[in-house]
């Protein structure tokens, strides 16, 4: 079948601002949106820029806005979206070229919440023990692939880019609820800050955007509640 695809293009070397380009592509309904982008790049316009690597939803490279919603281009099939298919870069981060945005501030926010296990106790020669129940408490948030679909779908983040954003809070959650970690208090102090978890207005955009099915809003709520216990 033929599908019409509109892509928001921007090349900083030639364009003053973004503009829409239309492509008519021969496509199979079972193909991924990413396959369509490859068709444009490989057989029509080699300068089209987008990130991708794994092509099956596990590396987090290709979050973009398709028909108004954030998703991974490699995780959605042509038959699942309506045509014409409109593809734009994720919002709230500076565009470098076409569908590629600058991720620096996103990773800076991630690094702010101490996204690593802190435990200075002598662990002994074998593994630390952890019951399956304790392990389950943070299972959901271990799945994050740092794709930024959640953060860039958040209306609070669009207006205040100093907000750490859902992804950073998800990654804090992963350690706050890990029974082996000893730095919850420090992490929660950071998230109590003006740009922390309480900025969240529970819009739920993040939860619907997450390609890993993480209950992002719930994780933020868990963190908010935990923050109230540290005083």
């Amino acid at each position: 079948m033929n599908v019409k695809v509109n892509i928001l293009r921007y090349n900083p070397e030639t364009d003053r601002k973004g503009h829409w380009e239309e492509y008519i592509l021969e496509a199979d309904p079972d193909e991924r949106i990413l396959d369509l982008l490859h068709k444009v790049k490989w057989f029509d316009d080699g300068s089209l820029a987008f990130r991708r690597s794994c092509a099956h939803g596990v590396c987090g490279s290709d979050a973009m806005v398709v028909n108004g919603e954030n998703m991974l281009a490699c995780q959605v099939l042509v038959k699942e979206v309506s045509t014409p298919i409109k593809i734009e870069p994720i919002r709230g981060l500076p565009v470098i070229k076409d569908l590629v945005v600058n991720m620096d501030s996103f990773f800076d926010s991630y690094k702010k919440v101490m996204p690593y296990l802190v435990n200075d106790d002598e662990p002994g020669e074998r593994e630390r023990l952890q019951s399956p129940e304790d392990r389950d408490r943070f299972e959901d948030t271990t799945k994050c692939i740092l794709c930024a679909a959640c953060t860039t779908s958040c209306p609070v983040f669009w207006t205040a880019d100093t907000y750490v954003g859902p992804a950073a809070i998800v990654n804090a959650h992963r350690f706050v609820f890990d029974s082996r970690d000893n730095a919850s208090k420090q992490r929660l102090e950071i998230l109590k800050d003006v740009d922390g978890a309480f900025r969240c207005r529970t819009a739920f955009n993040c939860t619907s955007a997450c390609p890993r099915g993480i209950q992002v809003t719930k994780a933020i709520e868990d963190v908010k509640r935990e923050t109230l216990t540290i005083n």
Partner: peptide, 17 residues
Amino acid sequence: VELEHWGLPFSRLENGK
């Protein structure tokens, strides 16, 4: 064991190993 000490969230047996 080292990866576990650095925080790797392995699946666990009932006895916590």
